[in-house]
Every structure is written in structure tokens, then in C-alpha cells.
Write a protein that binds this DNA or RNA. Sequence first.
DNA 1: TTAAAAAAATGACTTTTGGCACTGCATTCA
DNA 2: TGAATGCAGTGCCAAAAGTCATTTTTTTAA
Lengths: 216, 216
Amino acid sequence: MSIKVMVVDDQTLVREGIKSLLSLSDKIQVVAEAADGQQALDEICLQNPDVVLMDIRMPIKTGIEAVALINQWEPDSQPPVIMLTTFDDHQLVMQAMQAGAKGYLLKDVSLETLVEAIETVHAGETLIQPAITERVLQGLQGKQNEFDSIETPEPLSTKEVEILRLMAAGCSNREISQAMFKSEGTVKNQVSNVLAKLGVRDRTRAVLKAIEQGII
Amino acid sequence: MSIKVMVVDDQTLVREGIKSLLSLSDKIQVVAEAADGQQALDEICLQNPDVVLMDIRMPIKTGIEAVALINQWEPDSQPPVIMLTTFDDHQLVMQAMQAGAKGYLLKDVSLETLVEAIETVHAGETLIQPAITERVLQGLQGKQNEFDSIETPEPLSTKEVEILRLMAAGCSNREISQAMFKSEGTVKNQVSNVLAKLGVRDRTRAVLKAIEQGII
DNA sequence: TTAAAAAAATGACTTTTGGCACTGCATTCA
DNA sequence: TGAATGCAGTGCCAAAAGTCATTTTTTTAA
């Protein structure tokens, strides 16, 4: 029994393309489509899809409005909605999630990933990607979520900035220790301090944050 | 005899979708694809498509840059290029036209329109306002930017780009594995491949390189 | 249908990272 | 004097990252 999917996107080429693509999978059956949020609502009632793939930016009724309205229906008649997004959409994506979308995927995703995501939400599970792609969407100049933003931007000492610069140059702890004539253990401690002050958990993010904030 | 078409778009879903869609028409045969301008140039040499459909906004080399470079080739080896654009972005479109594109289409067109557009440019005509555009082209084809990438960076596969983007979002291997519905071991292998192809030794450098080259 | 190729997974392994607790040392300031 | 602070170092530990060889699965092509 294949999963009944509905595709909502205002761009004909994209919508038809995704339809055509999904038709290659025998696990998926595209049973409906729509070019805007309003049409989507109507079609869902008519066709009862198992899963809805919905673009965010659409005329008449946006994907966000559509999701919000779907969420007011009786739980049994609510199909899970996966938002399809581009890199430009971060704010909208968060709105959509709050409105009740079950997850979102970048359009930059492979067919296999898409199919697996559809299967996942159809099985009643939540897409894990949201928490992750959020950061992709936010990109380099992303803003923090509310919890992080309470952070006191704890100032880095001169040495810590030096360390951070070397980290951002791609140096390993050992290389940093050699560059700064310190023991590797000391460097590790310093790196830990930097991570803590920046509120991140590993050096990759520290570097990203440093670039973000123009520290380097 | 069908028209050999190449599809260039960085968003996998869109690219594959258009490919799949075009395959429905027996007038069209998709013989190649690419995810960025650089790949596009390589593929054109290899596959000799009759017509190229190209997105404007892409990493590494934009559609505009790619068109500009194609236009430096010998006239016989220049396939006509149709730009695909998401929004009505006059600025970029005009740049692309000046760089030598034969026309542009919004992605919001039907399959039939797309096919007709392909046939049109394949017949040697220009898509929009031929008289005017043609003149504009004549006047502005002298100046070219010459940035040749001497290094041939080994091209990343679709999945590898997906991985790299997640890496650049600060995701751990485990998070990536969850986002892509793969095992952590597989992700480690893939990450290793990405590192090798980028010629770097750890993920921090990979991310830095990705940022440098605009992959993310 | 079978063979070859690509993608995915596994397991064993080494290195790197990051966290933590604790010591020592020098400087500053009340 | 002594408490506080910042910097350096040590040792230990667990987790994550990265490498490699190999197997299994899936896809693709012949």
C-alpha cells in the first residue's frame, strides 16, 4: 500500500517536477496537487492525502496560513505537513513550524531523503531534521534562538582570541600549542574556555560563530 | 531526432524534478545535468547538449558566470542557454542575457511552454523580444571576466554536498546521520570522502573551504 | 537474468577533541 | 596578609572524529 502524497507549490515546473519525480517511487503515490494554500485546503478535503508536501511562499494563501488552518481541524483529519524550503526562508520556516508543520526539508535534498522523510512522518514520527536544518537555513549570519540570545556575550581575553583565530585557520590543538609555545593540554583548556564563552559545543561551531560575529 | 538538453540547478529536488518532467516529452532527451556552474561547463564539454537550462543562483559558479565563460568558446561549441529564474529578478536576468544567455523563463511555466522554449532556442532564435535583446547582446559582449580555476576541484556528489551543508551548520556526524536517515558509520565514510575531495584533513577546514567557495 | 558498479553498513582501530579535577605560579587589590 | 584572578600545566576520561578493510544491499547495465 503506497503512501498518498499531495504536492503544493505555485511554480508549475517545480510542482510537476516533484510529482514526476515521486512517481518513480512505488512507495509513493501522488494523489493531489495545488498551486496555493487555499487550493491545498480544498484538495486535502477531497483527496485525503496521507502526507502533504508544501512550499512556503505561495500566492493567495501562504503555506504557513494553510498549515495553521489545517491545525484547527479535528486531529484525525489532519495530514502531516512537510514544508519544502529554500535557504532564503528561515523566518518563514519557523513560523510554519509554530503553525503546526511536522517538519521541513530543503529543496536541496535527494529523492531518497525525501521519500524517507515522507515515510517517517507517515509513520507518525517527527522529522529530526528541523532542529538541524534550522542552522543551515540560518546560515552564517543566523540569529540565535531565544534561549541562546539571553547569553551575555562573555568577552574573550586576548589569548582566547588568539586561540580562536588559529582555530579558524584550521589548526589542530597540537599546531596551536606549537604556534603559541604552550603545552597541548593548556591549549585544550583554553579551547574549552572559548567554547564555553561562545556557548557552542565544538570547534567547528566556534569557528562559524567567530566568522558570524566578525571576531576573525 | 530529439533535442539533447542539459539541466543545471543546485537544488536536487528541482533539478531531478525537471529532468523527470522533461523525460515525459519525446521531443526532449536529458543527456546531462549539473549542480553548479563549474560542473555545467565540464558536462557541456563531455555531453554536447543542444540546449542548456540553467538556474541563475548557484554556488561555486553562478549561472551568469557560466554563461559568460561559455560565450568565450568557439561559436560551434556553444549551446544556447535558457536561464531559469525563481523570481522576476530583472537585474540578474539582464546580466545573464548580457553574458550571452539566449532567453529566460520563470520556473512558473508549464511543461508545454518549457518544451516550446527549448525548441525555439534550438532553432536558433532568441526567446524574449529577439530584436532588442539581440542588439543588446551585440553591444555588450566584449568584456569578460577571466577567472580560470586551474585546480580542478574534484566534484562533490549530491549527497556529499548535502553532507557538507550539514557539516557547515555545525552538525555532528550523528545529527547528520539522523537528518539523512543513514547510519553514523556511513556518514563517517561520506565525511571522509568529502574531506578527501576537498583536500583537507578535518571538518573544520572542510567547512572553511566550503564557505570560501560559496558551496554553502 | 546475471554481472558489474555504486551506495550503505559494519567493525575494528587510532587520533583528536573536549570536559574535569587539581596543582602551581604570579599579579592584583582590599 | 590573604583572597581573588588569570594563566600554565598535568593527568585522566569519555566522546567524537577519522581511517580502513570488508560485507551487504541496491542500482544499473549488459
